[in-house]
Design a protein around this nucleic acid. Structure first.
Length: 303
RNA sequence: CCCUUACGGUUU
């Protein structure tokens, strides 16, 4: 279900019942989560209905899975509605329910609502965890409210909340998305000195900041440093640089990097190919773009 | 116990 093979999951579910094994709530939830995580909110809803017809009452996990699915796939309004129904029906909320909603509000830049929910968590006796704070922090950082973001970091440290790599990464990513490149770089260096070891996502967030703001060469240099520290750039890291060159019209460099990525054993996915092809298409080289699409398909990647 | 929540790439 988590791999998006919902038909196969449903099949297994059927076989399970044919063999006389009764699915429990967790089995139903796995199906719901599979649909929800892959953007199929409607199928998730149907499964949710179906389980009720068969006498199972959805639990907090069932509701959370659907809400989180809507948030992750940009259907936040539906998440809000479902959350409303959940409240009406008196279903017990847990930290994950709040975290999903907080992530949604924060992603939409509604920081007032975000903080309101955090307060509410305390009021109902739930303790915000690292995920909660990461979501809040990420919102401030993306909005470019760096003072709030940095203050929140300090408060987290003082409250004894572990600043794991996702917290640092959220900060770095948010800042770079706002063009605060040097501050992001400062935070990154701070992380290297006194935080967890930067992982691929940390480096990639930083690299994207430079590459997407006209500093592709700096991005390349950072990737070199990343390798030097023993990390292997993955397809996301390479794609940023391929896209960076494609975007500035340096098609040869773009293609060269793309080939280098393949030589280093990274298999380009549809996003990597699209980044490369986009460069040709936007520069009016349609024939080359079409050829690349063909080549992509020959290598087993579907547009 | 298994199922839900936070961080990076293309089209955005």
């Amino acid at each position: 279900a988590q791999c998006g093979k919902n038909t196969e999951a449903a099949d297994l579910f059927r076989q399970m019942r044919l063999k006389g094994i009764k699915p429990d709530v967790a089995s139903w939830n796995a199906l719901i989560a599979g649909h929800a995580q892959h953007g199929n909110g409607e199928a998730a809803r149907q499964t949710f209905e179906q389980m009720q017809h068969e006498g199972f009452k959805p639990n907090t996990y069932s509701w959370n899975a659907r809400i989180a699915g809507y948030v992750e796939h940009g259907e936040f309004q539906k998440a809000v509605e479902l959350y409303g129904v959940m409240l009406q029906e008196g279903v017990q909320l847990d930290v994950s329910t709040y975290n999903a909603m907080i992530a949604g509000y924060s992603q939409h830049g509604s920081m007032d609502e975000t903080l309101k929910l955090v307060k509410e968590m305390y009021r109902v006796g739930l303790k915000p965890d690292t995920s909660t704070w990461t979501a809040v922090l990420s919102g401030f950082a993306r909005l470019g409210q760096k003072e709030e973001a940095l203050r929140l970091c300090q408060e987290m440290e003082q409250s004894g909340i572990e600043l794991n790599s996702t917290v640092w990464n959220a900060m770095i990513a948010g800042l770079t998305q706002n063009g605060h490149l040097l501050l992001a770089y400062d935070v990154f260096q701070h992380m290297q000195r006194s935080g967890p070891k930067p992982n691929a996502a940390s480096w990639t967030a930083l690299i994207s900041g430079f590459a997407q703001n006209g500093h592709v060469a700096t991005g390349l240099e950072l990737m070199r440093q990343m390798k030097e520290r023993g990390l292997v750039p993955d397809v996301a890291t390479w794609t940023i640089l391929v896209a960076g060159y494609a975007h500035e019209g340096s098609l040869e460099s773009s293609l060269e990097l793309f080939s280098q990525m393949q030589q280093e054993g990274i298999k380009p996915d549809v996003i990597a190919w699209t980044s490369l092809i986009g460069g040709y298409a936007k520069n009016g080289l349609l024939k080359e773009a079409l050829n690349l699409i063909e080549k992509m398909q020959k290598e087993g990647v579907e547009p």
